[in-house]
Design a protein around this nucleic acid. Sequence first.
DNA 1: CGGCATCCGGGAAGATACTG
DNA 2: CAGTATCTTCCCGGATGCCG
Lengths: 223, 223
Amino acid sequence: MKLEKITRRSYDDACATAHALDLIGERWAMLVMRELMMGPRRFSDLRAALPGISANVLTQRLEGLEVAGIVRKRRLPPPAAAQIYELTEWGLEAEPILLSLGKWAVRSPRHDPTLPLSAVGLMLSFRAKFDPARAKGVEVSVSFRFGEEVFSVGVHKGVLTSERGEADRPDVTVAGSPAAVAGLVYGKAPLKEWEKQGSLAVTGDRAALKRFADIYEMPPKAG
Amino acid sequence: MKLEKITRRSYDDACATAHALDLIGERWAMLVMRELMMGPRRFSDLRAALPGISANVLTQRLEGLEVAGIVRKRRLPPPAAAQIYELTEWGLEAEPILLSLGKWAVRSPRHDPTLPLSAVGLMLSFRAKFDPARAKGVEVSVSFRFGEEVFSVGVHKGVLTSERGEADRPDVTVAGSPAAVAGLVYGKAPLKEWEKQGSLAVTGDRAALKRFADIYEMPPKAG
DNA sequence: CGGCATCCGGGAAGATACTG
DNA sequence: CAGTATCTTCCCGGATGCCG
């Protein structure tokens, strides 16, 4: 059985930043939190979204985050009856940490945007890179479909909203992989290229999609 | 010589947050950056400010951060001729990461503010916890002395400034340990208690120090 | 003293296989 | 599907010693 010792290594530093790293500074911890930022997930969802993590380590991280009060384990009522993990209120409040990490690292000369990307990672990048000044006058509602995962993203009155689930009456719906959507929004290739190679399928107001993509622009790399 | 393999473990994830953790997610890396946030330091300064880090690991972290373009190694001109480490421009821009970590973790039920605290850690906490609304109408300049380390902190027109070095004409000067200053500013014990036990020595306008301390207030813990 | 290199022990992470 | 069990590998931490 278990019986393992919970001898967590600590920095023994009163600085709150150091304490944060005691809590969520271990390998994979913040990426597990990232995947929970858009709502509850199951164990195997997390494994699939985090290629490279082993079941072993995922179990340990979820245990540690639960003990720390960041993650809650819950069993859905029948007939679903599945076990899910979700962030607590306080865990959700860690979002600015993930966004500030992303905003900073996107300027890294070594950043490679061609690597695999999770759906939640893409949704959070929309939040991180959102600039209300560039969104002035833009009114649009987009539905993104990544296989089973569906997200609703809207820009209204200079505010970005994004959540899991189908949009009410989206202007446009985009289906494909997170990487292809990132390529469209952040890259230079026009929509037609992505459609030609079958990476994206768009239904609805294509001009609305362009208005959304035009909000985003890559910041310059650090020298 | 060296010849070691630089096979850094990577998350292989296009998400910029994951890339940030590739760069600065290793143990001690962000705390080394914290210690450099208020200006250049020497190897032994860093070791002293980070109790628990081994020379071995500190060397590795500094190398890694230098390769990543976050830290720069520089030799001071004679007669100092000392080797120092400093953050690059881009490295300095990581400050919001450290502050967001601190602002989040200070709500942890497990946070223990009685542990040892570095001078730089305290200075950054002043920035992290600063609330312009509470600073309205406050005009004060404080000089903090922690042994050899001197910092100048000012509040003017709702803006906090803090830097290494002597203040121009401070209203008040406080000498002691970072922990004692934190106890005064964030704790409940009044100044007289700290002076009575010889932890703090204050010269100048004591009311100015109180105005500064009153800006700060501990946020509530997470349930 | 500052800045490493080297060796070593323990423990965390990674890979794979297996189970209820 | 949701994890354990086991094994290997690698990283971290501590001690020591070199070299300018």
